[in-house]
Computed example of a mutant assay.
Amino acid sequence: MLKLLMQMFGASKPRPSPKPKAKPASRSKPVADRPAQPIERERVFKVAGLEKLEGDGNYSFPVVGESNYQKSLGLLAGPKEKVGKSIACVAVVEHEPSNKWDSNACPVFIDGYRIGHLAKDDAKDLIKVGGEGCCYAVDALIKGGYKTSKYSGMFGVSLDFLPRQFPATPIQKEMFRFFGLKPPSALTRGESWDREEELKTHEKYKEWSDFRLIISYLLSEEGREDYCIKKPSMKALRDAFTQLRKEGHSSESLASSMDEVVELMIDDNPNLEKV
């Protein structure tokens, strides 16, 4: 994940010393609350004959929608255990123009099983590069999937793909704002990564890295599931982080346990919490 110097902006009304709040044992949903899903191998791909997307070994490119395919991922990864999984494999990403929900849909398959898809913006960017009906092989990592006596964590998937020519992500643009910089027009991910390298020696880089970890997790499907919240805005995340830093919390402590950030966002916007 990513960088920093800025005057942090954002409304932050004075907050009295927080009262101790009863916290659920875990915000992950009990196993019984998660709906069952059918398992179906949809496709057979000749992976060796596909063009392979290039990566850097960090498996930082996200797949979304994995919550809908937990049984398929469980079949691929094996039974859940106390410690989550980390299984390297090869995935296939294919543009599916006939998809009845979204003609830009780019589902992700592992061993023929549909296990998620690219985010809408990522799918559009991939189609711009590869054309309609494009299909690629890519190294993938199945991760997560822990299970205790009461709770169960979801499986997730990330890809080893470094899309330098794609437009910059919202988090990359937030990096520029964090450092007090104006994001250039038509900013690409590659340009953002290059600028980040320049910022790594900045005194506030560690603080940005912690903030980026927070926003990356709480914007992710897994993070929202764990904390039982709807998708927060970047401004809500920025305002909560800024206020808590002013109250004396270290960025490292906020990143290691995000409860304070979530509780403050919910205080400011109760509708953020899933009922």
Rank of each mutant, 00 (worst) to 15 (best):
A91T: 10
K46S: 15
G57F: 07
G116L: 10
S28D: 09
I110L: 03
D56F: 01
E40S: 13
A36D: 09
V93P: 07
V93L: 09
D102C: 07
C89Y: 02
E66C: 13
D102H: 06
W101P: 00
E42C: 10
R43Y: 08
S67M: 11
I115Q: 04
P62T: 08
G116K: 04
L75C: 00
F61E: 13
G84H: 01
N58I: 07
V44A: 12
V31I: 06
V47W: 04
S28F: 09
S28N: 08
K52Q: 14
V64K: 00
K100S: 14
K29H: 03
I115G: 01
E81C: 04
A77W: 01
I87W: 02
P24W: 15
Y113T: 04
E51T: 13
P97R: 11
V31S: 11
A48T: 12
Y69V: 05
L76V: 08
V44P: 00
L75E: 03
G49Y: 01
G57P: 11
E66H: 05
D102P: 09
F61Q: 09
F45Y: 14
R34S: 01
P24I: 13
D111R: 14
G74N: 13
L76P: 00
P30Q: 06
V83I: 13
Y113A: 02
V47M: 03
E54L: 14
D111Y: 05
